[in-house]
Structure formats: structure tokens, C-alpha cells
Amino acid sequence: MTFLRVIPLFLLFSGFCVAANVPAGDAANGMPKVQITYSKVGPRQIEDATARAIPRDYASAWRTLALALEQNQTDLLDSYFVGTALDKFVAAVEFQKSSGLRTRYIDHGHTVEAGFYSPDGGALELHDTAHMEIQIIDGGNLIHTEQVTLNYVALMTPAADRWNVRLLESVPNF
């Protein structure tokens, strides 16, 4: 009888463990949370596959950028950045290296609204309200930390198996 009473408790505990493991997996990967809406996208309608790919690839791009800036590694960047964005972030890492600085982005998530989607499907513009903590590190010393909400305009273009960030600029407002 006592044994039967324990079974529901065991199942409840097991269920809790499984449920708690799902978000932990994402956190372990360091993948930032990206919430995206497509209600204002146009003139081209967003395709289902694109709608699924954009938040995944945009989040991966941010994770890549954060790693590159924290570890001062330029070779990470070309997996999700192309064109102007790649050139600028490679330069950013090089400047950091030469001055002995690093920047750490602790990403608290992105609220993204898709805007212009070119008629030929060749470019998608995003408006991103990003919440993050930015830390500036000189050698091993944390010299500045700041909680910020930044507005970014991103331009993404399709490649063979993903969408790349071609432009990423912070702006005072949208």
C-alpha cells in the first residue's frame, strides 16, 4: 500500500526532472532567446521554412558574435556573418586584440520584428530590441559592466543552408 502511494510521487518527480531539462539544454549551448514576429513583413510573404530558419540563424549569429568578441577569435565569425557585418566584426576583434581588451555579451534575449522582405526573397530586414549585459574586460580585469537595451537593425541574406547576417547596426530608435 505504501509502495503504491510512492509511485505517483516518483512519476511527478521524474516529470519535473524531464521538464526542467528542456530549457537547460538551450542555456548550456549559450543560444540567446529570440522572439520574432512577422506581422509587418513585406512586400514578400514569409515562407514557413524561412520563418523557422530566421530565429534559429539569428540566435546563432549572436552567439557566434558573443564568442568571437569574448575570445578574440575572428575565425568564428564567417559561419554566420558575411559582407559588411563580417568585415566590421573582424575589425572589431582585431582592434580588441591589439588593445588587450575583450567584450563579454551576456545575452538576455531579443524581441525581433521582421520588416522589409525583398520581393525576390534575397534580403530580410529585422528590427531587434536586444536586452543584454555588456562587460568590458582589460586583460583579466572587468573595467565596466552595463545592463543595456539596444535597438539593432539587421539585414539577413540567404545562403546554401542558412541565413547570414550581412549588416548589424545599433540605432538610437526605430
Binding site: K88, S99, L101, T103, H144
Partner: peptide
């Protein structure tokens, strides 16, 4: 003096 921007970073 530290200046940290989208591309340039220096002290």
C-alpha cells in the same frame, strides 16, 4: 580612456 564601438576598440 577606453573607447568601445561597433568596430573600433581602444584605450
Amino acid at each position: 580612456f577606453y573607447l568601445v564601438g561597433p568596430t573600433y576598440t581602444g584605450k
